[in-house]
């Protein structure tokens, strides 16, 4: 428990002080997106890593959060904070309602059902032109503000988004350490065993699905108010896949791993810009190689790799000595 607290404090301190070393610049803007994707990846990780329930339609909740927040503020001039609360509650309700039928399914069937859900929601964003603006998107979404402070610069948005990230992570770590977290892990290992032990499997799965939806909607709302423009393309199937990749690369079940995954997948394209057309190839290769050689994700993979390298170096040294 103490270790978890330490980890969290170090993380929070790093987040709060990071901008001091960055002196503004565009990297702060990238970090705003890293923050949004961290919330999304943590949300998916609660579902996938903790409870073992796959979702290939996570972008649907992300998009719903963004659109509810966006439409309420841009079209109906609602207060952005009120809109955010409404978005989060509404998406939570939707996830709760959808969770009961969908989470009856397991494994590949669950993957397919959530994938279908994601694509249907995406098509709805595209087709309800009168509400969402359709494929050309919705613009004119206002920034969030507190008192006189309007979150309209990268630096302000950085602190806004990352405060939410810290809260999300705190809640998620607590959740996974709690009795509920243990029950969820039991479901992950064996649903039947969990049921025998008296865990209300169905309700618990739906609840974690709802929590995951709520966090995703929060990220969506933050996205809408920082970018001030949303279009369906930002919430498509490929985004769901990207989120899945973040979780896997970071490490299933590891909350901080999700942050790592989100950071790497958001920063990687920035580095790849020099590759221009080749980046899609590099991206595919990195994805395959990382999953092949670090199936536990970076969080477990890097220490393992370091250890095995160390062993090899030691072996090399000793063999040199013997020569």
């Amino acid at each position: 428990m103490k270790r978890e607290l330490m980890k969290f404090l170090v993380f929070a301190a790093a987040v709060l002080t990071a901008p001091l070393f960055l002196k503004g610049g565009y990297i702060v803007n990238v970090l705003v997106f890293v923050g949004i994707y961290t919330i999304l990846a943590v949300a998916l990780n609660l579902l996938l890593g903790l409870a073992g329930q796959i979702s290939l339609g996570q972008a649907a909740f992300f998009g719903l959060g963004a659109y509810i927040s966006g439409v309420l503020t841009a079209t109906y001039a609602a207060n952005p904070w009120v809109a955010m609360v409404i978005a989060v509650i509404a998406v939570g309700a939707i996830a709760f309602a959808l969770g009961f039928p969908i989470l009856k399914l397991k494994g590949h069937y669950l993957a397919m059902a959530t994938l279908g859900m994601g694509i249907i929601v995406y098509i709805i964003f595209n087709e309800t032109v009168d509400i969402t603006g359709g494929p050309s998107g919705l613009s004119g979404i206002p920034n969030l503000s507190i008192g006189g402070i309007v979150f309209n610069t990268d630096m302000k948005n950085y602190y806004l988004v990352w405060s939410f990230v810290i809260v999300t992570i705190l809640l998620s770590v607590n959740l996974s350490q709690s009795r509920i977290g243990r029950a969820l892990r039991a479901i992950h290992d064996s649903e039947v065993a969990a049921r025998i032990l008296g865990v209300n499997v169905r309700l618990l799965k739906v609840q974690i699905f709802t929590v995951s939806g709520i966090f995703s909607a929060l990220a969506g709302s933050l996205y809408a108010h920082t970018v001030q423009f949303i279009s369906p393309a930002s919430f498509g199937f490929n985004v769901s896949i990207e989120l899945l990749t973040m979780v896997i690369i970071g490490g299933l079940g590891s909350i901080y791993g999700s942050f790592l995954g989100a950071a790497i997948l958001t920063l990687l394209p920035e580095l790849f810009r020099t590759f221009q057309d080749y980046d899609i190839v590099v991206y595919g290769t990195v994805l395959i190689v990382m999953t092949m050689f670090m199936p536990g994700g970076l969080v477990r993979g890097v220490p393992l790799l370091a250890r095995s390298l160390l062993v090899r170096v030691k072996a090399g040294l000793s063999s040199e000595k013997s020569v």
């Binding site: 494929p135 050309s136 998107g137 613009s139 970018v227 001030q228 423009f229 279009s231 393309a233």
Partner: peptide
Amino acid sequence: TGETMAVIP
């Protein structure tokens, strides 16, 4: 158009 609208702010 979508990207342009996003970049305008």
